[in-house]
Every structure is written in structure tokens, then in C-alpha cells.
């Protein structure tokens, strides 16, 4: 195995890394920004939540399930008209960010819903007894106590979507995963594939390590 070919591919590798950063760097913050309120909504409007509205909860929950059950590859194609509407094109990195975000929002929302469910009802009950508004409970109690778990969920979502972003090649989105497929798999440049995979492993490891550290740092449930 000779890695000379990899040196030739360096500009492409650089470009691909940038594309991956762009995809994840836009899709994940958007998913967190929009998925967190959706997750809180799902939790608080559930039959046992703070403000139960069983009917609208069932509708939203079904929608979330629907988007989540689409294989990413199918979603990528299925929403091309919508993608074109949003970013003005159906190919390239920007075009992949749309379906990535669409898929990541309900994915992250479900994780947030779980994070809050697992907190238990004690502090919420105490807050209700103190005469807190729902907004105060969400801001001052739920998000505070769920913060470490939510950081964990951001980590999981980021890692999952680094992997999903490899399918972006289908619409010419690029990225390091796509590079591994195009050069390594289709052109039998095993070395390029190995390097691309190693870069992905490093990326995922860094994200996971950072996420775990941040979650532990914000978690005060165990005495220091």
C-alpha cells in the first residue's frame, strides 16, 4: 500500500473536511435550536405533562415519528423541492444541510423529551407548589437539571449526523464520508479511503470526548 496517492488527494481531503464541518456546523446548531423547544413541547403536552393536550400531542408525535422513520437517503431525495425552495439549489453542500437539519430536529427533540422525562417529577412539583409559571419551570428547573443530559444528546446527534453526512454524495454534497466512498470505494483508492475513515474516527472521537467532558462538568448530581 502506497500513500503517495493520498498526498495527491490532500486538497480534496481538505475541501471534504471543510464541507463536513459546514454540514454539521449548520445542521446541528439548527437542530438544537429548533429540536429543544420541540422536545420540551412533546414532554409538557404529553398526557402526563405540565400542560396535557393529548390530541395535538398525538398529531405532533406522529409527525415526529414520520420524519424519523424515513431512511436518510430517501428523505434526501424526497424533499428536493423543499430544499430548492430554501437554499435555491438541489445540489451541493448547502443542499445537504436542509435534509440533515430536517432529519436532526425530530431526532434531537425525542432525545430532549427523554432527557426531561428521566429527571423525575419532584423538582417540577415543588416549583408548581411555589407558584411558578410553566415558562419559569422550563427555564429554571428542567433545562438546568437536564443540561448534562442534553449535552450528551447533542454529542450523540453530532456523531450520528457525521455518519449520515456521508450520504451527501448522492446530491453532490461532498464531505469526508463522501470522499471515502467516491475515491476509496468507487475508484479502489484504498489508501484514500483509509485516511478518510481515520479522519472520521478522529472527528468522532474529539466530538465524543468533548461532549462527555462538558456533560460531566455541568453535572452536579454527584458530590465532587
Amino acid at each position: 500500500m502506497s500513500f503517495d496517492v493520498v498526498l495527491e488527494r490532500l486538497p480534496e481531503i481538505n475541501q471534504a473536511m471543510l464541507e463536513t464541518f459546514a454540514m454539521i456546523g449548520v445542521a446541528i446548531p439548527l437542530a438544537v435550536l429548533l429540536g429543544t423547544p420541540l422536545g420540551i413541547w412533546l414532554w409538557s403536552h404529553a398526557p402526563a405533562g405540565l400542560k396535557p393536550t393529548p390530541k395535538s400531542h398525538a398529531v405532533v408525535s406522529a409527525l415526529v415519528n414520520m420524519v424519523r422513520s424515513f431512511p436518510f437517503l430517501i428523505l434526501l431525495i424526497a424533499i428536493i423541492p423543499f430544499t430548492r425552495l430554501i437554499v435555491g439549489t438541489s445540489v451541493g453542500t448547502a443542499a445537504v444541510i436542509v435534509p440533515l437539519t430536517i432529519n436532526a430536529i425530530p431526532y434531537f427533540a425525542r432525545l430532549v423529551e427523554q432527557n426531561i422525562t428521566q429527571l423525575g417529577t419532584g423538582a417540577v412539583e415543588a416549583s408548581r407548589a411555589m407558584g411558578a409559571t410553566r415558562g419559569q419551570i422550563i427555564r429554571n428547573v428542567l433545562l438546568v437539571d437536564a443540561k448534562p443530559a442534553i449535552i450528551g444528546s447533542i454529542t450523540i446527534t453530532t456523531v450520528s449526523f457525521i455518519s449520515y453526512s456521508a450520504m451527501s454524495g448522492l446530491v453532490g454534497g461532498g464531505g469526508i464520508g463522501d470522499l471515502a466512498i467516491r475515491y476509496g470505494y468507487y475508484r479502489y483508492e484504498t489508501e484514500t479511503m483509509v485516511v478518510a475513515c481515520v479522519l472520521m474516527v478522529i472527528l468522532v472521537t474529539v466530538v465524543q470526548y468533548g461532549g462527555t467532558r462538558a456533560a460531566r462538568w455541568t453535572d452536579k448530581r454527584v458530590s465532587a
Binding site: A123, E125, R128, M130, N140, K220, R221
Partner: peptide, 16 residues
């Protein structure tokens, strides 16, 4: 409720 305090068996403090 601002004039009615309550305490619980499980203390119900905010851990973080």
C-alpha cells in the same frame, strides 16, 4: 401559592 410553602419527603431540590 406564593403564600403557601411546601416541603416533601424527597426534598425535591434542583440538583444542578
Amino acid at each position: 401559592r406564593h403564600h403557601i410553602g411546601m416541603i416533601f419527603q424527597g426534598f425535591n431540590l434542583v440538583n444542578n
